[in-house]
């Protein structure tokens, strides 16, 4: 068992123990809920990971490193921000894909820009937002947020870029 699995087992254990101690069957419902979610996204996960397999064998690593690698500078971050906005789908699809890009050579800053841009500026998400709350709100939030994915990437490179 690797360190990451172990680190995740701790909160899982604590939450499970807490739910179990409540004595109202929360622990069983939590397990069932997690299992159901996993089963319902399993086809998506399979497709997402197959995509990843193909991206890994097809994508020229050198090209990716030039585009968004650690030495691609603010242009690389800008590309990551644009790519994040266009990425469709929820975390089950997008996070596995981003993790592959990261392993193939995307820089730390660019990867963080990618995650931030996808999760907060995704165009698909903006459609949901405009539908439920209205375009005016989406426009305000979107405009204010626009510089942040890039800034966050720059900050991450400056703070954490050196170590690997």
């Amino acid at each position: 068992m690797n360190l990451a699995t172990f680190t995740l087992l701790i909160p899982a254990g604590i939450l499970f123990a807490y739910a179990w101690r409540r004595g109202d069957g929360s622990h069983r419902r939590g397990l069932a809920k997690g299992g159901r979610t996993l089963l319902s996204v399993l086809p998506l996960l399979l497709l997402a990971f197959t995509t990843i397999g193909y991206v890994s064998v097809l994508l020229p690593q050198e090209g990716l490193q030039n585009l968004m690698g650690p030495d691609s500078g603010w242009r690389g971050l800008l590309r990551a921000q644009g790519m994040g906005m266009l990425m469709p789908g929820g975390p089950y699809v997008v996070l596995p894909l981003i993790s592959t890009l990261y392993q193939l050579g995307t820089g730390l800053g660019a990867t963080i820009t990618l995650v931030t841009s996808w999760s907060s500026l995704s165009l698909l998400n903006a459609l949901w937002e405009a539908h439920f709350i209205g375009w005016r709100f989406t426009l305000i939030r979107w405009t204010l947020l626009l510089p942040f994915p890039l800034l966050v990437g720059l900050l991450a490179e400056a703070w954490f870029g050196g170590t690997s």
Binding site: M1, L8, L9, A12, A19, L31, F49, T100
Partner: peptide, 27 residues
């Protein structure tokens, strides 16, 4: 094959992640 292998590699982590997500949603 590469994709499925990667999926199997992270499967234990995914199980934990979904367990946590399920418990949080119930609690």
């Amino acid at each position: 094959v590469g994709g499925v292998k990667t999926l199997l590699l992270v499967a234990p982590l995914l199980l934990c992640a979904f367990l946590i997500a399920g418990l949080i949603q119930v609690l």
